[in-house]
Simulated assay, not measured.
Amino acid sequence: MPISRVTKVYAIQDAKIAPLTADPAGGSATYGALIDVPGIKSLEISGDVEVKSLRGDNTQLATNSSITNVQVSVTHAKLSLDVLVAILGGAVTDSGTGTAETSTWDLTSANATMPPFKLEGVTPAGGVDTVGGDLHVVLHKLTLASFPDLGFSEEDFRIASFTANADPLLSNSKWISITLNETAAAIA
């Protein structure tokens, strides 16, 4: 008997992004190394639908709808310089030794590339109806939709976030994949 196609969705335990390195039409998309989105708090998917109505003879004759945008919003508790490179561009430079070590992310007009990337999020084991199972959501090709929320907050933690728009892959036309696993699996 196949696994149930209906489930609750409880919590998010992990999320990772990977730079999209190739997406040839008729080929296979390839991605760079996975980068942890540290302290993932939420992954929310929304979209826009354009509706066209055909009227005539003083009545509704037909309606057609099409998806015009898929968007994801992500909030995470910790700032990652590697995530910033993957979603916005820029470069990270490590320098110094001992107690004088630094890691600096620099964004310049030349390296603000807004590269495409994949995002995958997963519930904890038991975050679905199937005992010991989990649910994975993959957005295959994203591009940042607005500058990420960064900065400081007086006497409080600053939560980082970003919003990105999805496009279908050229290689297989996929926008979103949702996989319900009978046995929990790590993001791979």
Rank of each mutant, 00 (worst) to 15 (best):
M1A: 12
S4I: 10
R5L: 13
V6C: 05
V6Y: 10
K8P: 00
V9T: 12
A11M: 03
A11L: 09
A15N: 04
A15M: 04
K16E: 10
I17C: 05
I17D: 06
I17N: 05
A18D: 07
P19A: 13
L20Y: 01
L20G: 01
T21Q: 10
T21M: 06
A22G: 12
D23H: 07
A25I: 12
G27K: 01
T30Y: 08
I35L: 13
G39N: 04
G39M: 09
G39A: 10
K41E: 08
L43P: 00
D48N: 15
V49Y: 08
E50P: 08
V51A: 06
K52D: 09
R55S: 11
T59M: 11
A62P: 05
T63D: 08
T63K: 12
N64Y: 01
I67K: 11
T68S: 15
N69W: 00
S73C: 02
V74A: 03
T75D: 13
K78V: 08
L79Y: 13
L79D: 05
S80T: 04
D82L: 09
V83M: 03
V83K: 09
A86Q: 09
L88C: 04
G89A: 12
G90W: 11
V92H: 10
T97A: 13
T97V: 12
G98A: 05
T99I: 08
A100Q: 14
E101G: 06
T104K: 08
W105C: 01
A110W: 01
T113A: 13
P116G: 07
K118W: 09
L119H: 10
L119Q: 07
E120H: 00
E120T: 15
V122E: 08
V122N: 04
P124V: 09
G126D: 09
D129F: 05
D129P: 02
V131S: 13
D134L: 00
L139I: 14
L139P: 07
H140C: 07
L142K: 12
F147M: 15
G151L: 08
E154T: 12
E154S: 12
F157D: 11
F157A: 14
R158G: 07
I159R: 03
F162V: 02
F162R: 02
A164V: 02
S173W: 06
W175V: 15
S177I: 07
T183V: 15
A185I: 05
A185D: 01
A185W: 00
A186T: 14
